[in-house]
Computed example of a mutant assay.
Amino acid sequence: MKEVKVGIVGLGRLGSVHAENLAFKIPGCKLMAACSLEQKELDWAKTDLKVDFVTTDYKKMVDEADIEAVAIVSSSPEHCWMIEYALDAGKHVFTDKPLGCSLEECKRAEAAVERHPDKLFFLGFMRRYDPSYADAKAQIEAGKVGKPYLVKATGLDPEACVESCIQFCKTSGGIFIDAASHDVDLMRWFLGGEVTEVYAAGTTFKHPEFAAGGDTETGMAMLKFDNGTVAFLHVGRTAPHGYHTETEIVGTDAHIRVAGIPWKNRAMIFDANGACQPIIENFPQRFAEAYLLEMVDFIKCIQEDRKPELTVYDGTKATLVTYAITDSFHSGKPVQVEYK
């Protein structure tokens, strides 16, 4: 098995997870280079990850480091030009969601992927790699639910992180763009159709700063698909107990619910409040296994000269849907989703 040499850009909360996976947990992979605008993150990469080539210049890393693949975990507005630059330089590319922040950006990424069919492009919708979601998909494909016709998805960030959400709400694109693309991807995956129309609304009762920033504290949306199926979305930022995500697939013969109480572990604390268990605090904890499994598959795809199921076009479609939901939220009217 050949060794795949990788460089990573972005060493923040999620980037550090991917960096550690690439450095220590994936057979046949060697993390050779790291790029960040934060010197303390580069120092961490050199000291803790034993990465020799560190830089604040992405192009310098792509051009000069001894790598054949790039993992892009930078801020969302940087994704598409970085994808294009790496592919044009002859590198395989992994990029975290979203693909882009506009249709124009997504088309730029599509064109780069199409120019380089010999290079691997891998999109990081990691929930497809989560064992529970993967099992739900297998059950659907095996006909265990009959015809799936409804998906109900909930994704709630913890109240403990709300100040960070407030700080970035004016520049994040809004809650649907920031938090709903994984749910939209799962809806398309489970229902086997494309979104044709969306209607969205939002409520803000606890933190008026969201409304002042043109965003919402809690968002809801209904999505119609071209095969007659439907989906409901509920995203929020004030879960008092911790990070909370769940998905239900309703079929003609059965329901599948990927949920349950999001226990952090099996430890039970007995104190003045009674018997309590800690709750998962954030998405890196909940999807730690999925993040590892998707990166394992990225490396295997390179080694085996195999293309992943997810394509660049899946990224474009998820982006278009989240923007349509955001438009509906602001206009208060249903919005048609047009794939151009």
Rank of each mutant, 00 (worst) to 15 (best):
K2V: 07
K2G: 04
E3V: 14
K5V: 09
G10E: 10
G15D: 00
G15T: 01
H18I: 13
I26V: 13
I26A: 00
L31E: 06
L37A: 11
E38F: 06
K40A: 12
D43T: 15
W44R: 15
K50H: 13
V51T: 11
F53K: 15
T56A: 14
K59Y: 08
V62C: 14
E64P: 14
E64V: 12
I67A: 00
A69E: 14
V70Q: 12
V73C: 14
A86C: 13
A89K: 14
K91V: 00
F94W: 00
C106R: 01
R108V: 04
A109I: 02
E110D: 12
A111F: 01
A111M: 04
A111N: 05
A112V: 03
V113F: 10
V113T: 11
P117H: 13
D118Q: 15
K119G: 00
K119E: 00
K119H: 06
F122W: 05
D130T: 09
Y133L: 04
A134R: 15
I140Y: 09
E141I: 00
G143C: 02
K152Q: 12
A153N: 08
D157N: 11
D157Q: 11
P158L: 08
S164Q: 06
C169T: 15
K170I: 01
T171F: 03
I175P: 01
F176D: 02
D178T: 04
D185F: 05
D185S: 08
L186C: 12
M187Q: 13
M187Y: 10
R188W: 02
E194R: 10
E194H: 08
E194M: 05
Y199E: 06
A200F: 01
T218D: 10
M222P: 04
D226A: 07
G228V: 12
V230E: 11
H234M: 08
A239M: 10
A239R: 09
E248F: 07
E248R: 14
I249K: 01
H255K: 14
I256F: 08
R257A: 05
G260I: 07
K264M: 11
R266S: 12
R266W: 05
M268P: 03
F270Y: 14
G274E: 08
Q277D: 06
I279N: 04
E281D: 10
N282S: 15
P284A: 05
A290D: 01
Y291V: 09
L292E: 15
L293F: 08
E294D: 13
M295H: 01
M295E: 10
I299G: 03
K300N: 14
D305P: 08
R306M: 09
K307F: 01
K307C: 04
L310W: 03
Y313P: 07
D314I: 01
D314P: 12
K317P: 13
A318C: 15
A318L: 06
T322D: 12
Y323D: 07
A324N: 08
T326S: 14
D327N: 11
F329P: 04
H330G: 06
S331I: 03
G332M: 05
P334Y: 10
P334T: 07
P334W: 09
K340Y: 08
